[in-house]
Design a protein around this nucleic acid. Structure first.
Lengths: 134, 134
DNA sequence: CTGAATCCACAAAGATACTG
DNA sequence: CAGTATCTTTGTGGATTCAG
């Protein structure tokens, strides 16, 4: 059985398409580190600290399906699989670097910023007193 | 009660931080269209076709919390709220444009590519015959 | 070592109705 | 108009176990 991902079927704009491709939980990280050369499954797994193999495999499979990475299987014992960037994947290099730079600057600007905490009831923000509409 | 998002607490690298901030389902789209100027809630909602108000609000709240957009409430009847980019949000402009361009090119390279279909059982990939390990 | 198979919890997203 | 409140549904991701 097949399940559709949470991303919309037809991206509303090209930016959606791009985020659809690199926006996965670990995809950016994998692509970024693959800029330095081939990596094996375990190396990539270590990058994704706390992620189960299942998730790592899924992310890699999607990247492969999207033509950004190449999966090379060596028929040896013990098994060995190497992942590398395709030319298409490498075309993301400047963007990945820009993103990384921006992220670094953002962290410096928000030193102790917590990740998003989603409250079930955000509560009222600015109760206006309803004057006249212009 | 507060719940932690699925993103990791401490991003492993700055690229993770960046994707943490702009990688939400509609965040990129909102930011991208806000490059053209202020927008009201309903305008943004229309961009996110099929998204419930709850989701739109959440995404906007997170962008606001991360300092990328500014929420301006006009105490009038009917209510009016305008969202605009902060300077920090605008600093993403080159990246958003690069992403959009890349996405456009990607779509052209993959004309009829389906979005990711996740199969529960991808099936075997390359059954090696297990020779000797070098 | 590199996954595949299975089960399951929990959070995210959808639908709907409602309010200031 | 711009959200809230609630309920329900969905599905992603964790943990574990097994296999080639």
């Amino acid at each position: 059985m097949k399940k559709r991902q949470r991303w919309s079927t037809i991206p509303g704009c090209s930016l959606e398409a791009a985020l659809n491709v690199i926006g996965g939980r670990w995809k950016g990280v994998f692509l970024f580190h693959l800029l330095d050369g081939k990596m094996r499954f375990n190396e990539l797994s270590r990058l994704a600290k706390g992620a189960s193999p299942r998730l790592v495999v899924n992310q890699l499979r999607e990247l492969e399906h999207d033509g950004l990475i190449c999966r090379e299987v060596f028929p040896v014992v013990p098994p060995k699989v190497e992942y590398s960037l395709t030319d298409e994947g490498r075309s993301l290099e400047p963007i990945l670097i820009s993103l990384s730079d921006w992220g670094y600057a953002w962290i410096e600007r928000h030193p102790f910023q917590e990740p998003h905490l989603v409250t079930d009831s955000p509560g009222p923000i600015s109760p206006p007193e309803a004057p006249r509409t212009p």
